[in-house]
Deep mutational scan, measured.
Amino acid sequence: QVATSTVRILGMTCQSCVKSIEDRISNLKGIISMKVSLEQGSATVKYVPSVVCLQQVCHQIGDMGFEASIAE
């Protein structure tokens, strides 16, 4: 089973930030795809909930120095 959710990301300033986040999160087990939008300050994450949760994704992004939260 696959889920798609949006994560809000604060602190991104350039495409390099976007690429860094996409590269790191895409390597997590259970992540199918991730598309980060600098303009919208968010990311669309396609993932397998039984393998990885959005809290883990937000935590990983937080470790990179950005502020991440699950969009309502």
Rank of each mutant, 00 (worst) to 15 (best):
Q1P: 15
Q1K: 12
Q1N: 07
Q1I: 07
Q1F: 06
Q1M: 06
Q1W: 13
Q1L: 05
V2I: 10
V2Q: 07
V2H: 09
V2E: 12
A3V: 13
A3H: 11
A3E: 11
A3P: 02
A3T: 12
A3R: 10
T4N: 05
T4I: 13
T4Q: 08
T4A: 04
T4L: 12
T4S: 07
T4H: 07
S5P: 02
S5L: 07
S5W: 07
S5C: 15
S5N: 10
T6P: 03
T6Q: 10
T6N: 09
T6L: 13
T6E: 09
T6H: 10
V7S: 00
V7Q: 00
V7E: 02
R8P: 04
R8W: 15
R8D: 07
R8I: 10
R8L: 09
I9W: 04
I9C: 06
I9Y: 01
I9N: 00
I9F: 04
I9V: 06
L10T: 11
L10F: 14
L10N: 09
L10P: 03
L10E: 08
G11V: 06
G11R: 04
G11Y: 06
G11N: 05
M12W: 05
M12H: 00
M12T: 01
M12V: 03
M12P: 00
T13S: 09
T13K: 14
T13D: 05
C14E: 02
C14I: 05
C14H: 03
C14S: 07
C14N: 05
C14G: 05
C14W: 04
C14K: 01
Q15A: 11
Q15F: 13
Q15P: 09
Q15G: 11
Q15M: 15
Q15V: 10
S16K: 14
S16A: 12
S16T: 14
S16H: 12
S16C: 05
C17M: 05
C17E: 13
C17R: 03
C17A: 05
V18F: 04
V18M: 05
V18W: 06
V18H: 02
V18L: 05
K19I: 10
K19Y: 10
S20W: 07
S20N: 12
S20H: 08
S20P: 03
I21T: 01
I21H: 01
I21W: 04
I21N: 02
I21F: 03
E22S: 05
E22Q: 08
E22T: 09
E22D: 01
D23Q: 13
D23W: 12
R24L: 06
R24K: 13
R24Q: 10
I25M: 07
I25T: 03
I25Q: 00
I25K: 01
S26T: 11
S26P: 01
S26F: 06
S26G: 13
S26H: 08
N27K: 14
N27D: 09
N27L: 14
N27P: 10
L28S: 03
L28G: 01
L28N: 02
K29V: 11
K29Y: 14
K29P: 12
K29C: 07
K29E: 11
G30H: 03
G30S: 03
I31F: 04
I31M: 03
I31T: 01
I32Q: 02
I32K: 04
I32S: 00
I32H: 03
I32M: 06
I32L: 09
S33Y: 11
S33Q: 09
M34Y: 04
M34K: 00
M34G: 00
M34S: 02
M34F: 15
M34N: 00
M34A: 07
K35T: 09
K35C: 07
K35L: 07
K35P: 00
K35E: 07
K35Q: 09
K35I: 08
V36Y: 02
V36P: 00
V36F: 05
V36I: 13
V36N: 00
V36C: 08
V36M: 04
S37T: 07
S37V: 06
L38R: 05
L38K: 02
L38D: 00
L38P: 03
L38E: 01
E39H: 11
E39P: 08
E39Y: 09
E39M: 10
E39I: 10
E39A: 11
Q40R: 14
Q40T: 12
Q40M: 12
G41R: 15
G41M: 11
G41A: 14
G41T: 05
G41Q: 14
G41E: 14
S42L: 14
S42Q: 11
S42W: 08
A43C: 05
A43D: 04
A43I: 06
T44I: 14
T44P: 01
T44E: 12
T44L: 13
T44W: 13
V45P: 01
V45T: 01
V45L: 13
V45N: 01
V45G: 02
V45F: 06
K46C: 15
K46E: 15
K46I: 15
K46G: 04
K46D: 05
K46F: 13
Y47H: 02
Y47R: 00
Y47Q: 01
Y47W: 08
Y47P: 00
Y47M: 02
Y47V: 02
V48F: 15
V48N: 15
V48D: 15
V48S: 13
P49E: 07
S50W: 08
S50Y: 08
S50H: 08
S50F: 08
S50K: 07
S50V: 05
S50T: 10
S50A: 12
V51S: 04
V51Y: 06
V51C: 05
V52K: 01
V52R: 01
V52C: 04
V52M: 07
C53Q: 10
C53H: 11
C53W: 08
C53Y: 06
L54E: 01
L54Y: 04
L54T: 01
Q55W: 15
Q55S: 11
Q55M: 12
Q55V: 11
Q55A: 11
Q55R: 12
Q55H: 13
Q55G: 08
Q56P: 01
Q56V: 10
Q56K: 11
Q56M: 14
Q56L: 10
Q56W: 15
Q56R: 11
V57H: 03
V57I: 14
V57K: 03
V57C: 04
V57Q: 02
V57E: 02
V57G: 02
V57Y: 04
C58M: 13
C58F: 12
C58N: 09
C58K: 13
C58Y: 09
H59L: 15
H59Y: 15
H59N: 14
H59V: 14
Q60Y: 14
Q60W: 13
Q60V: 15
Q60K: 11
Q60H: 09
Q60L: 15
Q60M: 15
I61W: 04
I61Y: 04
I61E: 02
G62I: 15
G62M: 15
G62Q: 15
D63Y: 11
D63R: 14
D63G: 08
D63Q: 15
M64Y: 02
M64F: 04
M64E: 01
M64Q: 01
M64P: 02
M64K: 02
G65F: 05
G65K: 02
G65S: 03
G65Q: 03
F66H: 01
F66K: 03
F66C: 03
F66E: 02
F66G: 02
E67M: 12
E67F: 14
E67T: 11
E67I: 13
E67P: 09
A68R: 04
A68I: 06
A68K: 02
A68M: 06
S69N: 07
S69Q: 10
S69V: 11
S69E: 09
S69K: 09
I70T: 07
I70R: 04
I70V: 12
I70L: 10
A71F: 11
A71L: 14
A71Q: 13
A71D: 13
E72I: 10
E72R: 07
E72S: 11
E72N: 10
E72L: 10
E72T: 13
